[in-house]
Design a protein around this nucleic acid. Structure first.
Lengths: 193, 193
DNA sequence: TCCCCAATCTTGTCGTTGGTAAGATTGCGC
DNA sequence: GCGCAATCTTACCAACGACAAGATTGGGGA
Protein backbone atom coordinates (compact mmCIF):
# COMPACT_ATOMS: atom_id res chain seq x y z
CA UNK A 1 0.00 0.00 0.00
CA UNK A 2 1.32 3.39 -0.91
CA UNK A 3 1.51 5.82 1.94
CA UNK A 4 0.47 9.41 1.61
CA UNK A 5 3.41 11.74 1.28
CA UNK A 6 3.07 15.22 2.66
CA UNK A 7 5.29 17.97 1.34
CA UNK A 8 6.04 20.84 3.65
CA UNK A 9 6.92 23.71 1.36
CA UNK A 10 8.61 26.38 3.37
CA UNK A 11 10.84 27.80 0.70
CA UNK A 12 9.57 29.11 -2.60
CA UNK A 13 12.42 31.16 -4.00
CA UNK A 14 16.15 31.17 -3.71
CA UNK A 15 16.11 32.97 -0.40
CA UNK A 16 14.43 31.27 2.51
CA UNK A 17 13.21 34.32 4.40
CA UNK A 18 14.12 33.32 7.92
CA UNK A 19 16.42 30.38 7.70
CA UNK A 20 18.10 31.14 11.00
CA UNK A 21 14.81 30.73 12.86
CA UNK A 22 13.88 27.66 10.82
CA UNK A 23 17.17 25.92 11.63
CA UNK A 24 16.86 26.61 15.35
CA UNK A 25 13.30 25.27 15.31
CA UNK A 26 14.43 22.20 13.42
CA UNK A 27 17.22 21.70 15.95
CA UNK A 28 14.74 21.95 18.83
CA UNK A 29 12.39 19.46 17.23
CA UNK A 30 15.18 17.04 16.36
CA UNK A 31 16.64 17.37 19.86
CA UNK A 32 13.28 16.57 21.40
CA UNK A 33 13.11 13.47 19.23
CA UNK A 34 16.62 12.05 19.39
CA UNK A 35 18.61 14.18 21.82
CA UNK A 36 21.05 17.02 21.24
CA UNK A 37 23.55 14.79 19.47
CA UNK A 38 21.08 12.64 17.58
CA UNK A 39 20.85 14.83 14.50
CA UNK A 40 23.10 16.21 11.80
CA UNK A 41 23.42 19.67 10.36
CA UNK A 42 22.42 18.15 7.04
CA UNK A 43 19.20 16.85 8.53
CA UNK A 44 18.29 20.28 9.84
CA UNK A 45 18.93 21.60 6.33
CA UNK A 46 16.69 18.94 4.81
CA UNK A 47 13.91 19.65 7.30
CA UNK A 48 14.15 23.32 6.38
CA UNK A 49 14.17 22.63 2.66
CA UNK A 50 17.59 24.08 1.91
CA UNK A 51 20.90 22.68 0.74
CA UNK A 52 23.11 20.80 3.15
CA UNK A 53 25.45 23.69 3.74
CA UNK A 54 23.05 26.64 3.98
CA UNK A 55 22.99 26.57 7.81
CA UNK A 56 26.73 27.10 7.92
CA UNK A 57 26.31 30.66 6.70
CA UNK A 58 24.20 31.51 9.74
CA UNK A 59 25.87 29.47 12.44
CA UNK A 60 29.38 28.68 11.26
CA UNK A 61 29.20 25.06 12.32
CA UNK A 62 27.15 22.58 14.30
CA UNK A 63 28.41 24.00 17.59
CA UNK A 64 27.09 27.35 16.46
CA UNK A 65 23.55 25.97 16.20
CA UNK A 66 23.78 24.50 19.69
CA UNK A 67 25.19 27.78 21.01
CA UNK A 68 22.18 29.63 19.60
CA UNK A 69 19.83 27.09 21.19
CA UNK A 70 21.58 27.48 24.56
CA UNK A 71 21.42 31.26 24.39
CA UNK A 72 17.73 31.24 23.53
CA UNK A 73 17.19 28.66 26.26
CA UNK A 74 18.75 30.82 28.97
CA UNK A 75 16.68 33.79 27.84
CA UNK A 76 13.44 31.83 28.06
CA UNK A 77 14.62 30.28 31.32
CA UNK A 78 15.25 33.66 32.90
CA UNK A 79 11.83 34.84 31.72
CA UNK A 80 10.12 31.80 33.20
CA UNK A 81 11.90 32.15 36.53
CA UNK A 82 11.20 35.88 36.70
CA UNK A 83 7.51 35.27 36.06
CA UNK A 84 7.39 33.01 39.12
CA UNK A 85 8.07 35.91 41.47
CA UNK A 86 10.61 35.67 44.28
CA UNK A 87 9.06 32.98 46.40
CA UNK A 88 11.44 30.06 46.75
CA UNK A 89 8.81 27.41 46.17
CA UNK A 90 7.40 28.96 43.04
CA UNK A 91 10.84 29.58 41.55
CA UNK A 92 11.73 25.96 42.20
CA UNK A 93 8.55 24.73 40.59
CA UNK A 94 9.13 27.08 37.66
CA UNK A 95 12.63 25.64 37.25
CA UNK A 96 11.24 22.14 36.88
CA UNK A 97 8.30 23.25 34.77
CA UNK A 98 10.70 24.95 32.35
CA UNK A 99 12.92 21.89 32.12
CA UNK A 100 9.98 19.67 31.21
CA UNK A 101 8.19 22.08 28.88
CA UNK A 102 11.41 23.16 27.14
CA UNK A 103 13.09 19.81 27.21
CA UNK A 104 15.25 20.47 24.16
CA UNK A 105 16.54 23.83 25.38
CA UNK A 106 17.21 22.43 28.85
CA UNK A 107 19.07 19.40 27.55
CA UNK A 108 21.45 21.63 25.62
CA UNK A 109 21.86 24.36 28.26
CA UNK A 110 23.26 22.02 30.87
CA UNK A 111 25.64 20.21 28.56
CA UNK A 112 28.20 22.99 28.13
CA UNK A 113 30.60 20.72 26.30
CA UNK A 114 28.21 20.95 23.35
CA UNK A 115 28.29 24.70 22.79
CA UNK A 116 30.45 27.80 23.17
CA UNK A 117 30.02 28.80 26.76
CA UNK A 118 31.85 32.08 26.28
CA UNK A 119 29.42 33.26 23.63
CA UNK A 120 28.29 36.78 24.66
CA UNK A 121 24.59 35.99 24.24
CA UNK A 122 24.93 32.86 26.32
CA UNK A 123 26.93 34.60 29.04
CA UNK A 124 24.50 37.48 29.51
CA UNK A 125 21.38 35.32 29.50
CA UNK A 126 22.98 32.84 31.87
CA UNK A 127 23.90 35.63 34.27
CA UNK A 128 20.36 36.92 34.29
CA UNK A 129 18.95 33.48 35.09
CA UNK A 130 21.52 32.92 37.85
CA UNK A 131 20.60 36.21 39.49
CA UNK A 132 16.93 35.32 39.63
CA UNK A 133 17.73 31.90 41.05
CA UNK A 134 19.85 33.38 43.79
CA UNK A 135 17.10 35.85 44.68
CA UNK A 136 14.61 33.00 44.89
CA UNK A 137 16.71 31.00 47.29
CA UNK A 138 17.14 34.07 49.47
CA UNK A 139 13.52 33.85 50.59
CA UNK A 140 14.43 30.46 52.02
CA UNK A 141 17.24 31.53 54.29
CA UNK A 142 15.01 34.21 55.80
CA UNK A 143 16.59 36.79 58.06
CA UNK A 144 19.67 34.66 58.63
CA UNK A 145 21.19 36.25 55.53
CA UNK A 146 22.39 34.55 52.35
CA UNK A 147 23.27 30.92 52.96
CA UNK A 148 25.38 29.42 50.18
CA UNK A 149 24.82 25.82 51.28
CA UNK A 150 21.07 26.34 51.26
CA UNK A 151 21.21 27.93 47.82
CA UNK A 152 23.23 25.01 46.48
CA UNK A 153 20.88 22.54 48.13
CA UNK A 154 17.82 24.12 46.53
CA UNK A 155 19.49 24.33 43.14
CA UNK A 156 20.76 20.76 43.34
CA UNK A 157 17.34 19.46 44.32
CA UNK A 158 15.35 21.08 41.52
CA UNK A 159 18.05 20.42 38.95
CA UNK A 160 18.47 16.81 39.99
CA UNK A 161 14.73 16.28 39.99
CA UNK A 162 14.38 17.72 36.50
CA UNK A 163 17.31 15.67 35.18
CA UNK A 164 16.10 12.39 36.64
CA UNK A 165 12.56 13.03 35.47
CA UNK A 166 13.70 13.90 31.95
CA UNK A 167 15.94 10.91 31.44
CA UNK A 168 13.29 8.56 32.75
CA UNK A 169 15.23 7.38 35.80
CA UNK A 170 12.41 8.30 38.14
CA UNK A 171 9.57 5.79 38.10
CA UNK A 172 7.02 8.61 38.51
CA UNK A 173 8.00 10.08 35.15
CA UNK A 174 6.03 7.36 33.40
CA UNK A 175 2.61 8.55 34.50
CA UNK A 176 3.01 10.87 37.47
CA UNK A 177 2.30 14.57 37.82
CA UNK A 178 5.66 16.37 37.83
CA UNK A 179 4.43 19.57 39.41
CA UNK A 180 2.70 17.83 42.31
CA UNK A 181 5.74 15.63 42.81
CA UNK A 182 8.31 18.43 42.87
CA UNK A 183 6.14 20.32 45.37
CA UNK A 184 6.11 17.28 47.64
CA UNK A 185 9.87 16.89 47.20
CA UNK A 186 10.59 20.53 48.03
CA UNK A 187 8.34 20.29 51.08
CA UNK A 188 10.13 17.16 52.23
CA UNK A 189 13.53 18.78 51.93
CA UNK A 190 12.98 22.39 52.89
CA UNK A 191 9.93 22.78 55.09
CA UNK A 192 10.65 22.46 58.79
CA UNK A 193 7.66 20.76 60.34
CA UNK B 1 62.48 20.46 15.34
CA UNK B 2 61.43 16.89 15.23
CA UNK B 3 59.27 15.79 18.08
CA UNK B 4 59.78 12.54 19.86
CA UNK B 5 57.29 9.92 18.86
CA UNK B 6 56.29 7.38 21.43
CA UNK B 7 54.88 4.08 20.30
CA UNK B 8 52.54 2.29 22.64
CA UNK B 9 52.77 -1.34 21.65
CA UNK B 10 49.88 -3.19 23.17
CA UNK B 11 49.41 -5.78 20.51
CA UNK B 12 52.19 -8.02 19.28
CA UNK B 13 50.43 -10.76 17.37
CA UNK B 14 47.24 -11.10 15.43
CA UNK B 15 45.16 -11.56 18.56
CA UNK B 16 45.05 -8.78 21.07
CA UNK B 17 44.58 -10.81 24.22
CA UNK B 18 41.93 -8.74 25.94
CA UNK B 19 40.52 -6.37 23.41
CA UNK B 20 37.18 -6.11 25.13
CA UNK B 21 38.78 -4.68 28.27
CA UNK B 22 41.08 -2.44 26.21
CA UNK B 23 38.17 -0.93 24.27
CA UNK B 24 36.18 -0.21 27.42
CA UNK B 25 39.20 1.44 29.00
CA UNK B 26 39.78 3.49 25.86
CA UNK B 27 36.12 4.51 25.92
CA UNK B 28 36.41 5.58 29.55
CA UNK B 29 39.52 7.61 28.88
CA UNK B 30 38.06 9.21 25.76
CA UNK B 31 34.81 9.97 27.58
CA UNK B 32 36.72 11.66 30.39
CA UNK B 33 38.49 13.79 27.81
CA UNK B 34 35.73 14.75 25.40
CA UNK B 35 32.46 13.38 26.76
CA UNK B 36 30.52 10.26 25.91
CA UNK B 37 29.77 11.41 22.36
CA UNK B 38 33.13 13.03 21.68
CA UNK B 39 34.84 9.97 20.30
CA UNK B 40 34.45 7.48 17.50
CA UNK B 41 34.62 3.71 17.49
CA UNK B 42 37.53 4.04 15.12
CA UNK B 43 39.41 6.16 17.60
CA UNK B 44 38.99 3.54 20.31
CA UNK B 45 40.34 0.99 17.86
CA UNK B 46 43.34 3.20 17.08
CA UNK B 47 44.04 3.74 20.77
CA UNK B 48 43.97 -0.03 21.26
CA UNK B 49 46.19 -0.72 18.27
CA UNK B 50 43.69 -2.74 16.27
CA UNK B 51 41.85 -2.24 13.01
CA UNK B 52 38.88 0.10 12.95
CA UNK B 53 36.34 -2.68 12.92
CA UNK B 54 37.77 -5.05 15.51
CA UNK B 55 35.63 -3.59 18.34
CA UNK B 56 32.50 -4.48 16.41
CA UNK B 57 33.09 -8.16 17.04
CA UNK B 58 32.94 -7.62 20.80
CA UNK B 59 30.27 -4.96 21.07
CA UNK B 60 28.24 -5.04 17.89
CA UNK B 61 28.21 -1.28 17.49
CA UNK B 62 29.00 1.95 19.24
CA UNK B 63 25.91 1.65 21.42
CA UNK B 64 27.21 -1.73 22.56
CA UNK B 65 30.38 -0.11 23.93
CA UNK B 66 28.33 2.46 25.83
CA UNK B 67 26.05 -0.29 27.14
CA UNK B 68 29.06 -2.16 28.50
CA UNK B 69 30.32 1.04 30.14
CA UNK B 70 26.92 1.65 31.73
CA UNK B 71 26.68 -1.91 33.04
CA UNK B 72 30.16 -1.74 34.55
CA UNK B 73 29.29 1.67 35.94
CA UNK B 74 26.22 0.44 37.78
CA UNK B 75 28.18 -2.48 39.22
CA UNK B 76 30.89 -0.19 40.57
CA UNK B 77 28.23 2.25 41.71
CA UNK B 78 26.39 -0.38 43.71
CA UNK B 79 29.69 -1.49 45.27
CA UNK B 80 30.56 2.07 46.25
CA UNK B 81 27.13 2.69 47.78
CA UNK B 82 27.15 -0.62 49.64
CA UNK B 83 30.57 0.17 51.12
CA UNK B 84 29.16 3.37 52.61
CA UNK B 85 26.88 1.45 54.96
CA UNK B 86 23.23 2.34 55.44
CA UNK B 87 23.55 5.80 56.92
CA UNK B 88 21.79 8.32 54.74
CA UNK B 89 24.55 10.89 54.91
CA UNK B 90 27.33 8.50 54.01
CA UNK B 91 25.37 6.99 51.15
CA UNK B 92 24.70 10.48 49.79
CA UNK B 93 28.35 11.43 50.05
CA UNK B 94 29.32 8.14 48.40
CA UNK B 95 26.91 8.90 45.55
CA UNK B 96 28.66 12.18 44.84
CA UNK B 97 32.12 10.76 45.40
CA UNK B 98 31.41 8.04 42.86
CA UNK B 99 30.13 10.54 40.29
CA UNK B 100 33.29 12.62 40.56
CA UNK B 101 35.79 9.78 40.75
CA UNK B 102 34.08 7.77 38.00
CA UNK B 103 33.09 10.70 35.88
CA UNK B 104 33.07 8.75 32.62
CA UNK B 105 30.91 5.93 33.96
CA UNK B 106 28.51 8.35 35.60
CA UNK B 107 28.15 10.49 32.50
CA UNK B 108 27.08 7.46 30.50
CA UNK B 109 24.90 5.82 33.16
CA UNK B 110 22.51 8.73 33.41
CA UNK B 111 22.18 9.31 29.69
CA UNK B 112 20.04 6.27 28.87
CA UNK B 113 19.45 7.44 25.32
CA UNK B 114 23.07 6.49 24.66
CA UNK B 115 22.88 2.83 25.53
CA UNK B 116 20.55 -0.19 25.65
CA UNK B 117 18.69 0.18 28.86
CA UNK B 118 17.11 -3.25 28.61
CA UNK B 119 20.47 -4.97 28.52
CA UNK B 120 20.36 -7.74 31.19
CA UNK B 121 23.67 -6.73 32.76
CA UNK B 122 22.55 -3.13 32.96
CA UNK B 123 19.16 -4.03 34.41
CA UNK B 124 20.48 -6.25 37.19
CA UNK B 125 23.27 -3.87 38.23
CA UNK B 126 20.88 -0.93 38.16
CA UNK B 127 18.41 -2.77 40.36
CA UNK B 128 21.09 -3.53 42.90
CA UNK B 129 22.16 0.10 43.10
CA UNK B 130 18.56 1.29 43.40
CA UNK B 131 17.94 -1.07 46.30
CA UNK B 132 20.90 0.27 48.25
CA UNK B 133 19.85 3.84 47.57
CA UNK B 134 16.36 3.18 48.88
CA UNK B 135 17.76 1.55 52.01
CA UNK B 136 19.98 4.57 52.60
CA UNK B 137 17.11 7.01 52.40
CA UNK B 138 15.13 4.89 54.85
CA UNK B 139 17.41 5.94 57.70
CA UNK B 140 16.25 9.47 56.98
CA UNK B 141 12.53 8.94 57.39
CA UNK B 142 13.12 7.25 60.74
CA UNK B 143 10.23 5.44 62.37
CA UNK B 144 7.67 7.26 60.23
CA UNK B 145 8.06 4.50 57.63
CA UNK B 146 9.17 4.82 54.01
CA UNK B 147 8.55 8.31 52.66
CA UNK B 148 8.67 8.45 48.86
CA UNK B 149 8.91 12.26 48.70
CA UNK B 150 11.86 12.20 51.07
CA UNK B 151 13.58 9.49 49.05
CA UNK B 152 13.09 11.47 45.86
CA UNK B 153 14.30 14.63 47.55
CA UNK B 154 17.50 12.98 48.72
CA UNK B 155 18.12 11.37 45.36
CA UNK B 156 17.41 14.61 43.48
CA UNK B 157 19.74 16.57 45.73
CA UNK B 158 22.77 14.32 45.44
CA UNK B 159 22.19 13.69 41.76
CA UNK B 160 21.69 17.36 40.97
CA UNK B 161 24.74 18.30 42.97
CA UNK B 162 26.90 15.77 41.14
CA UNK B 163 25.58 16.86 37.73
CA UNK B 164 26.08 20.55 38.35
CA UNK B 165 29.52 19.98 39.79
CA UNK B 166 30.55 17.78 36.87
CA UNK B 167 29.43 20.11 34.12
CA UNK B 168 31.06 23.07 35.79
CA UNK B 169 27.88 25.01 36.45
CA UNK B 170 28.66 25.32 40.12
CA UNK B 171 31.26 27.97 40.89
CA UNK B 172 32.73 25.81 43.66
CA UNK B 173 33.73 23.13 41.17
CA UNK B 174 36.67 25.28 40.07
CA UNK B 175 38.62 24.97 43.32
CA UNK B 176 36.28 23.84 46.07
CA UNK B 177 36.19 20.61 48.05
CA UNK B 178 33.28 18.55 46.74
CA UNK B 179 32.96 16.29 49.75
CA UNK B 180 32.85 19.13 52.25
CA UNK B 181 30.38 20.98 50.04
CA UNK B 182 27.95 18.10 49.59
CA UNK B 183 28.01 17.50 53.35
CA UNK B 184 27.06 21.12 53.95
CA UNK B 185 24.37 20.88 51.29
CA UNK B 186 22.86 17.71 52.79
CA UNK B 187 22.91 19.29 56.23
CA UNK B 188 21.17 22.40 54.89
CA UNK B 189 18.43 20.37 53.26
CA UNK B 190 17.87 17.43 55.57
CA UNK B 191 19.00 18.22 59.09
CA UNK B 192 16.32 19.75 61.24
CA UNK B 193 18.02 22.23 63.53
C1' DT C 1 14.36 53.69 -12.29
C1' DC C 2 18.29 51.01 -12.53
C1' DC C 3 22.34 49.02 -11.09
C1' DC C 4 25.57 47.20 -8.13
C1' DC C 5 26.99 45.08 -3.96
C1' DA C 6 26.54 42.29 -0.03
C1' DA C 7 23.86 38.83 1.97
C1' DT C 8 22.21 34.47 1.08
C1' DC C 9 22.07 30.02 -0.88
C1' DT C 10 24.02 26.46 -4.28
C1' DT C 11 27.02 22.76 -6.24
C1' DG C 12 31.26 20.31 -5.76
C1' DT C 13 34.66 18.17 -3.10
C1' DC C 14 37.56 16.10 0.80
C1' DG C 15 38.67 13.43 4.85
C1' DT C 16 36.26 10.90 8.54
C1' DT C 17 32.67 8.15 10.55
C1' DG C 18 29.45 3.92 11.59
C1' DG C 19 28.34 -0.26 9.74
C1' DT C 20 28.36 -4.52 6.53
C1' DA C 21 30.57 -8.24 3.92
C1' DA C 22 33.95 -11.47 3.07
C1' DG C 23 38.27 -13.33 3.93
C1' DA C 24 42.78 -14.19 6.84
C1' DT C 25 44.89 -15.77 11.18
C1' DT C 26 45.28 -18.18 15.36
C1' DG C 27 44.68 -20.78 19.58
C1' DC C 28 42.22 -24.34 21.89
C1' DG C 29 39.73 -28.64 22.44
C1' DC C 30 39.44 -33.16 20.81
C1' DG D 1 48.38 -32.44 15.38
C1' DC D 2 44.34 -31.04 13.27
C1' DG D 3 40.15 -28.73 12.47
C1' DC D 4 36.91 -25.43 13.90
C1' DA D 5 35.32 -21.37 16.10
C1' DA D 6 36.80 -17.12 17.89
C1' DT D 7 39.19 -13.24 16.65
C1' DC D 8 40.95 -9.83 13.70
C1' DT D 9 41.80 -8.07 8.86
C1' DT D 10 41.02 -5.56 4.33
C1' DA D 11 37.55 -3.67 1.28
C1' DC D 12 33.61 -1.17 0.67
C1' DC D 13 29.27 1.93 1.19
C1' DA D 14 26.35 5.81 2.46
C1' DA D 15 26.23 9.79 5.48
C1' DC D 16 28.52 13.31 7.95
C1' DG D 17 31.03 18.04 8.94
C1' DA D 18 33.53 21.34 6.74
C1' DC D 19 35.71 24.13 3.07
C1' DA D 20 35.96 26.46 -1.57
C1' DA D 21 34.07 28.72 -5.29
C1' DG D 22 30.30 30.17 -7.82
C1' DA D 23 25.10 31.44 -8.55
C1' DT D 24 21.04 34.19 -7.12
C1' DT D 25 18.62 37.90 -5.23
C1' DG D 26 16.87 41.96 -2.75
C1' DG D 27 17.56 46.57 -1.28
C1' DG D 28 20.00 51.05 -0.94
C1' DG D 29 22.19 54.79 -3.40
C1' DA D 30 22.89 57.25 -7.90
Amino acid sequence: MLSTVRFEVRNIGYHHGNLRRAIIDAALQATAETGPTGWSLRELARRSGVSHVAPVHHFGDKTGVLTAVAAEGYELFADALAAAGDDFFEVGVAYVRFALSHRAHFQVMFRPDLYRRDDPDVVSAERRAAGILRAGSRTLSGDAGPDRALTLAAWSTVHGFASLWLNGSMAESADGDPEATIRAVLRAAFVRP
